[in-house]
Amino acid sequence: MTLLRTEGLAKHFGGVAAVDDLALAVEEGEILGLIGPNGSGKTTALNMLSGFLVPDRGSVWFADENVTGKKPVALARRGLLRMFQTTRVFVRISAFDNLLTAGLARGLDEAEARERARVLLEELTLTPVMYLDAGQLSGGQRKLLEFGMCFIAPPRLALLDEPFAAVHPVMRETMARFIRRRNEEGHTFLVVSHDMPIVVELCDRAACMNAGRLIAIGATRDVLQDPVVIEAYLGSESHV
């Protein structure tokens, strides 16, 4: 079943088409990688999917409901959760309180949120720092905490923006493991990433954007070997 799809999605900034006529579909239960060179419109697309930008044209459908122009809160309530490239944790309360707050925001009662927070802290190896203010955590620990806040109540679809950028390799592995395990439990992911080895390892399918348009979509290996994709990456970074 298609969980999320867009039709003719477009956004212009000034005269520049950041995203143009984007038709993307995320199938339930998959990990879809969204790749593309810098400035290809990935983050703009993600901002429209998560309600932070209102598209100029086109529509977004989530679980067969038209959610175009809906606010981030409304989408989060429906289980469409988004994580940012720069972490957005609540820096002046403890890591544990961060998780608790996220749980309450998703409608859990307090006892349940506490219980799940403890389990998640353990799984994410954050238990030793659970009482520290989130502002005192390292960058990688904050990223992990964000995963926890996203999964304190199971999301239907998690949108991850460059989750592996500037993260220590050991923590990168913890994060990849976390994503894989959740995926095996049936969770769906859309991962925007530059990190090709991880995309290959993690994603069932990949979609590639260039200059605001979708240029390839399909099985990850096929997409990465697609001449159009290689062409798009040549001259910028040749990760492939």
Binding site: A76, R82, R88
Partner: peptide, 11 residues
């Protein structure tokens, strides 16, 4: 602490 963060988590 973070308005955008709060919003994106369903607050």
């Amino acid at each position: 602490d973070d308005e955008t963060g709060a919003e994106s988590r369903g607050i």
